[in-house]
């Protein structure tokens, strides 16, 4: 089989390739942040006139809160009542599964095409 000779990439081409990668990767992290879609938001569930009891804290917990620098229930209120929202729709779960599985299937397919070429050139055609 004829050896594949890759074209030589120009300096400019190399630089462009690097910029493309950097933009994509920075984008992947910051776009969800900028759009405010980052789902990590833990939201406090407000409790009127919080007391340690109404926040479900027993005396030992209160003692540790005090040691951590929270003198009263109001100061610890936001931290104690913050909760993740774990409700989700089965549709979005299905979308996630399809995206992940699809990604791996696509990757292994393409890899295999490229791999056969590598093996054929390295060890010769069968």
């Amino acid at each position: 089989m004829a050896r594949y000779v890759p074209p030589v990439q120009s300096k400019l081409g190399q630089i462009i390739d690097v910029i493309v990668l950097v933009v994509l990767s920075v984008g992947a992290l910051f776009v969800p942040l900028w759009l405010g879609l980052a789902g990590s938001a833990k939201l406090p569930v407000p409790v009127e006139n919080p007391t340690w009891e109404s926040l479900g804290q027993n005396p030992v917990m209160v003692q540790q809160w005090n040691k951590l620098g929270f003198p009263d229930a109001a100061s610890a209120h936001d931290m104690i009542t913050a909760r993740y929202d774990y409700s989700f729709s089965w549709v979005s779960l299905a979308v996630m599964v399809i995206v992940i599985v699809g990604y791996f299937v696509m990757m292994i397919r393409f890899s295999d095409i490229e791999y056969r070429e590598v093996i054929a050139e390295k060890f010769g055609e069968k």
């Binding site: 992947a28 776009v31 969800p32 990590s40 989700f88 996630m96 995206v99």
Partner: peptide, 12 residues
């Protein structure tokens, strides 16, 4: 996915 689903999709 529970809590950070958007990042997961963005990343993939």
């Amino acid at each position: 996915f529970l809590g950070y689903g958007t990042q997961l999709i963005a990343m993939i």
